[in-house]
């Protein structure tokens, strides 16, 4: 399927570099519109080329500012960059305030940068339910790098690992106890640690603490996370930060690491889809089945326990009908 240009008009427009079409298609993906489904299928063969880099970490550590600086750095190397910034939706109103929107000084005509905010729309884990698909759209649209900034709720932002090829965990000096809790959560997902605001007191201590923590842990799949000191406001350390990302990417490119990782993720995704489909069909079958309703009554009357009832239904439905 490689290289076949899509037929869906929006997907074609995205491949042509039409930014409005891309923006539109992202919205359709977010609301799970059938038109988006078709475009995603057609665009899949064009994915897998972008470097997808995640930035995560507690609130207020300056992820957006770092993203701004990384955009500048990548543009100066002539690379195109798309950004997906995820912010939380209110569990009460469903509404969301996204931003301060990432701001970079860019030429008005610069088509090498595309920035999109996403509301998490009810999903915990630091991403929105459709972030993976949105990243794929940006990948298929031809951006060299896709930066994904997560919600920033801290320890639970681990889903980025399923999407990014390199995950940066951003911290600041004096997080102290926070770093301890990171051992269990964010600590496990970092390929690169960035101590932002390293112009502040305590930065060197924070860096040393992290280096020590990293040294204590066993390398994960052969990689020991890098620790970089940076400051988005000064700025300094931005080149080093990107160099650390590149070195992790180079590490993935050795042997079959990238392929193994890709296979592992796609397997999980495919399994999830198969499972969804099976669950849907099974639900239909159960709802239409009188025996199932009878079994529920048996359980309600305490004549059967739920596990035995479920087993009975399974055996019965597995039996070929005469």
């Amino acid at each position: 399927m490689n290289g076949r240009e899509p037929r869906a008009p929006l997907a074609r427009a995205v491949r042509r570099g039409d930014r409005r079409a891309l923006a539109r298609l992202i919205s359709l993906v977010e609301r799970r519109d059938p038109a988006a489904d078709r475009a995603l299928r057609e665009l899949y063969s064009f994915t897998g080329r972008a470097r997808v880099v995640g930035l995560t970490g507690p609130l207020g550590v300056g992820k957006s500012s770092l993203v701004n600086r990384l955009i500048g750095h990548l543009r100066s190397q002539g690379r195109s960059v798309a950004v997906v910034a995820v912010d939380p939706s209110s569990p009460f109103s469903g509404g969301s305030v996204l931003g301060d929107r990432i701001r970079i000084e860019r030429e008005d005509a610069d088509t090498g940068v595309f920035i999109r905010s996403m509301a998490s729309r009810g999903q915990s884990g630091g991403l929105a339910p459709t972030t993976r698909d949105v990243v794929r759209l940006l990948d298929a649209a031809g951006f060299d790098v896709v930066l994904v900034e997560t919600v920033g709720s801290g320890q639970v932002d681990v889903e980025i690992r399923e999407i990014a090829s390199t995950s940066i965990v951003v911290l600041i000096p004096h997080l102290g106890d926070e770093v301890q809790t990171l051992k269990a959560g964010l600590f496990e997902i970092a390929d690169v640690f960035c101590v932002n605001k390293s112009d502040l007191d305590g930065a060197e201590q924070a860096r040393r603490d992290l280096v020590e923590l990293v040294a204590l842990g066993a390398p994960r799949h052969g990689w020991r996370p890098k620790v970089v000191s940076a400051s988005a406001s000064q700025p300094f350390g931005i080149d080093e930060l990107w160099a650390a990302v590149e070195s992790h990417e180079a590490f993935l490119d050795e042997g079959t690491r990238r392929a193994d990782r890709d296979r592992h993720r796609l397997r999980a995704e495919l399994f999830e889809l198969v499972l969804d489909d099976a669950a849907r069909r099974l639900r239909g079958a159960v709802e239409a089945d009188r025996t199932f309703a009878e079994l529920v009554e048996e359980v309600r009357a305490r004549r059967l326990d739920p596990r035995t009832a479920a087993e009975r239904w399974r055996r019965r439905s597995a039996r070929p009908r005469g």
């Binding site: 009460f92 109103s93 509404g95 969301s96 301060d100 905010s117």
Partner: peptide, 11 residues
């Protein structure tokens, strides 16, 4: 936001 909208606050 409280009315359920997604607000991109550009600053």
């Amino acid at each position: 936001r409280d009315a359920g909208m997604e607000v991109i606050y550009a600053g």
